[in-house]
Design a protein around this nucleic acid. Structure first.
Lengths: 115, 115
DNA sequence: GGCAAATGATACGGATGCGAAACGATTTCG
DNA sequence: CGAAATCGTTTCGCATCCGTATCATTTGCC
């Protein structure tokens, strides 16, 4: 991947952020987006503790974000039957669609960028 | 600019979001970031009304964001002497530095991306 | 001069997120 | 078996943001 100039990178971020703000879609916080993308891009399994460590935030932050995104059906939670203390976070169809569309949005904005 | 694959675009967004979350720096909301980047990338003058129209949000959203980012010294407000109803939003040294560093962070993450 | 329009700020009630601390359930291990 | 450790959740008080409605100031226009 090549990002030629700083200005282009910033423009890309601006355009994608603008489309997010304008969009009807539920606006996730930066933290929630980081969690969501990690769940969908990094290999499973994902646990609360693991995500908290990866993001360098406290566990309640993860729990609350999962509450919110779970209500939006973007992720789902399941007890680990091997070790019932763990909660395994899994992807959902709706979440995969959301992430896919987001990726497409980035690409679309990238292609519209001026030289 | 070329973003070869959707996965790369998503990875880039993830990595930059992660660095933002982990960072000590004051974490701006998506709206605030969109406003900040618009102020620094789009040609002035910038007014509350103009920003509200560009982001498709209400004026109080802009006012509040300017309050917050003004306290962080990322932007400054000045009455328009030509038409004292207007408030002109201007860039600051701190804000320019913040945006510049953010752009560098994007580029750094982009270069680290896997093929 | 007087009144409508325009601009940005503010008030209000509600929703949501935060950090720190405590909690319940489960597992580990001496 | 029982104490300690682990894991995720919940609670608490607080801060911030939201949308709607309203406000004060300034301007334009008849």
């Amino acid at each position: 991947m090549i990002v030629l100039r700083p200005l282009q990178a910033l423009r890309l971020w601006q355009q994608v952020s603008l489309s997010e703000v304008r969009d009807e879609a539920p606006d996730l916080t930066v933290r929630q987006m980081a969690i969501l993308l990690t769940i969908y891009l990094d290999p499973p399994p994902h646990t609360v503790r693991g995500l908290a460590a990866k993001l360098e935030v406290t566990k309640p932050v993860i729990t609350r974000a999962l509450d919110t995104m779970g209500a939006l059906k973007l992720v789902s939670r399941h007890r680990d039957e091997k070790d019932r203390r763990n909660v395994l976070i899994r992807r959902t169809v709706e979440g995969a669609l959301y992430v896919e569309r987001f990726g497409d949005a980035i690409i679309a904005k990238a292609q519209e960028l001026p030289l």
